[in-house]
């Protein structure tokens, strides 16, 4: 396509978007008003299901099927990364050089790691009560593990991160969500229906299937992020071209 034609396509697209955007803005309800038809119904439904955090009730109970789709998107994205960022022919795995880290940073990373893991699990476990849930907590757990890479050394991270196990956990988390949904069918209700006893409002065991689905998502997301970052780390630190490696070795020899 010529530059001219591309500019025309861009202009048409921008004008179309601007027209639709302006039309939508003219019909919008005023900002911060008191009329919330969807919000009121969602809160009412959340209270009936004894889930204190309405957002979790919407995500994992009222519209749990949508969340299955979102979880699958992450699963598919990580699968794609694993396929794309694999070691290809003509590439070799090398041991990365150890990095020097100030002792204070090392001590901090080792001390904060368990606390960060705990905070991540806390966020997963309290999804039905307070802001947070499986996705947020799962990412915190995965970040906590990578404190070992940024604060200690890549090899320290490798020791607590058998990637195969996390790949398995990723699949199990995704599968657990699907199976929990099927449990609704077996109980004679709909797919992903909240069939468990609802418990006491505002306690950890409230919300029926909401905490279980949160746990499944937490497991899936934490493992997915670990696997994803493992692929990026391997590409940047471990995998080199055989030609390039030869040249680097030659340069080192020359310097010596």
């Amino acid at each position: 396509m010529t530059r001219r034609a591309r500019l025309w396509v861009l202009t048409a697209g921008l004008l179309g978007t601007a027209a639709l955007f302006a039309a939508a803005c003219l019909r919008m309800p005023p900002f911060g008003g008191t009329w919330h038809p969807y919000g009121d119904r969602a809160v009412q439904a959340a209270l009936l299901q004894r889930t204190a955090n309405t957002v979790s009730s919407v995500n994992f109970d009222q519209r749990a099927f949508d969340t299955l789709g979102e979880e699958s998107i992450l699963f598919a994205a990580v699968l794609g990364t694993v396929v794309l960022l694999r070691r290809t022919s003509g590439e070799r795995r090398v041991t990365p050089q150890p990095a020097s880290v100030p002792p204070a940073v090392r001590r901090y990373a080792i001390a904060v790691l368990p606390l960060a893991l705990l905070i991540g699990l806390y966020v997963v476990a309290h999804g039905q009560l307070s802001p947070g849930g499986g996705f947020q907590g799962g990412v915190v757990v995965a970040t906590a593990l990578h404190l070992l890479y940024v604060g200690v050394d890549y090899r320290a991270l490798e020791r607590v991160r058998p990637v195969g196990l996390y790949e398995l956990a990723d699949g199990v988390g995704e599968g657990a969500y699907v199976v929990l949904g099927a449990a609704g069918l077996l109980a004679g209700s709909a797919y992903l229906a909240n069939i468990l006893p609802l418990g006491t409002f505002n306690t950890l065991s409230s919300g029926g299937t909401v905490p279980l689905l949160n746990a499944a998502v937490g497991m899936e997301v934490a493992s997915a992020v670990v696997v994803l970052l493992a692929r990026f780390l391997a590409q940047a630190l471990e995998i080199v071209d055989e030609k390039e490696e030869g040249r680097e070795r030659g340069e080192r020899r020359k310097r010596e």
């Binding site: 990373a109 904060v112 960060a116 947070g132 940024v150 604060g151």
Partner: peptide, 15 residues
Amino acid sequence: DLALVTSVLGPAGTL
């Protein structure tokens, strides 16, 4: 909880 998560992830990001 937002502050709790920031207090862990903020320094991690800087590192």
